[in-house]
């Protein structure tokens, strides 16, 4: 279980995340929605142990990320925003490094890397340096890094960003296939994605949660029954929403 408790984050005097709480259980795919600058990435960075929260904490399968970060991080596979990686390395070497840091050695390490390469269809570029890959392949390499150790919890910041329609489909298929065994949190700006993969969605605006429910529940908040209307109504200032 992933339990997020009253997370807060301030950058100087600016509070980017203002007390976010939610829990996600095994088998759920949580969609994290919100306009640009809402605090999605910041929240994910705190859950994954990259940023220390100003207040609050996240309990990752029983491990508190602020007090037992190493154990908690071991439970998580993380695809950061914009899929960073070590550009001068080849795909195989990069995945080999992440496997090693994840504690795999010898033949198990090779097997993990091979499985991840196969699963993300990277066979054709395995010997290529990452900085010579196209954006979509870079995204898939970073995706491979996140699922390589078969983590019980997957946190992905815009996993389909920059992928072509076929690849978007493939990634959503993979998420759906893994969903039953895992806890998955994805942030996205693509509202159809919520319908196609998420069992639940949270809408966050200005660092606070403004809606939390199944896609159907969210849809029922708007007379038109469309998610983008709900999204606009909840995330644009009250006045503008009333004007339409």
């Amino acid at each position: 279980m992933l339990e997020v408790r009253e997370l807060r984050k301030s950058f100087g005097s600016f509070e980017a995340v203002k007390g976010v709480s939610f829990t996600v259980n095994k088998g759920e795919v949580l969609g994290f929605l919100g306009p640009n600058g809402a605090g999605k990435t910041t929240t994910m960075r705190m859950i994954t142990g990259f940023l220390p929260p100003s207040a609050g904490t996240a309990i990752v399968n029983g491990h508190d990320i602020t007090t037992h970060p190493v154990q908690a991080k071991g439970q998580i596979g993380y695809l950061p925003e914009n899929a960073p990686s070590y550009d001068s390395m080849t795909v195989t070497d990069f995945l080999g490094f992440t496997a090693e840091v994840r504690g795999f050695r010898g033949s198990e390490r090779r097997d993990r890397v091979e499985a991840a390469i196969k699963q993300c269809r990277l066979e054709g570029v395995r010997r290529q340096a990452i900085d010579t890959l196209s954006k979509g392949y870079r995204q898939r390499t970073c995706f491979a890094q996140a699922i390589l150790h078969d983590p019980p919890i997957l946190i992905m910041d815009e996993p389909t960003d920059g992928l072509d329609p076929n690849q978007k489909f493939v990634v959503r298929e993979m998420i759906r296939k893994m969903a039953a065994q895992k806890i998955i949190v994805i942030s996205t700006h693509i509202l159809e994605e919520v319908d196609s993969v998420c069992t639940r969605a949270i809408i966050i605006a200005n660092g606070t949660i403004v809606a939390n429910g199944t896609p159907q529940e969210l849809r029922s908040k708007s007379p038109t029954g469309r998610l983008d209307d709900v999204f606009r109504r909840l995330t644009i200032g009250g006045e503008e929403a009333r004007n339409d």
Partner: peptide, 14 residues
């Protein structure tokens, strides 16, 4: 600069 630090420090290492 390349944000790979975000990967490195979210691995199970200190």
């Amino acid at each position: 600069r390349r944000h790979s630090i975000e990967l490195l420090l979210t691995m199970p290492i200190t």
